[in-house]
């Protein structure tokens, strides 16, 4: 199984992928994020009613997308270049086991397009297309 900190440069409190379950570089990644009450952003989003910010679900998909790259991203410069057709269908709460599925749709000139879905217990919470740029 892939060693997450060895592959992604992200760290607490911004590492948003806990496990990589399936991985075919350049094609598809299936990863997981377990949402706990200890997540720093839940303290204020919102007081007394914690739910995962939608933009962080996009970030989870982007980080999961990092595992489409065959090699470790340490030292590599990969940036989010665009988000298209983002839909937030239902919120994610503490205790949720989020399934992050990302598929590569195509690439051209250092730019890659990904399709991602965040789901929980078979229910889609968020879908989006992400564009990532490798410099």
């Amino acid at each position: 199984m892939i060693e997450i900190p060895a592959h992604l440069p992200h760290r607490f409190p911004f590492l948003l992928v806990d496990r990589v379950l399936e991985r075919e570089p350049g094609v598809r990644v299936l990863a997981e994020k377990l949402v706990t009450n200890g997540e720093p952003y839940l303290q204020g989003h919102f007081e007394g009613r914690p739910l995962v910010p939608g933009v962080l679900m996009l970030e989870m998909l982007a980080q999961a997308g990092g595992f489409l790259e065959a090699d470790s991203l340490h030292g590599a410069a990969i940036f989010l270049a665009g988000v298209q057709d983002a839909r937030f269908k239902a919120p994610a709460f503490p205790g949720d086991r989020l399934r992050l599925e990302v598929c590569a749709e195509g690439a051209f000139a250092g730019l890659m397009k990904l399709r991602g879905t965040v789901s929980c217990e078979g229910r889609e919470l968020c879908t989006a297309a992400l564009l990532v740029k490798r410099l």
Binding site: A81, G82, G106, F108, A109, G110, L111, K113, L131
Partner: peptide, 10 residues
Amino acid sequence: DSIDALELVL
């Protein structure tokens, strides 16, 4: 721009 280029390629 370059994102449009990728969209066109697809």
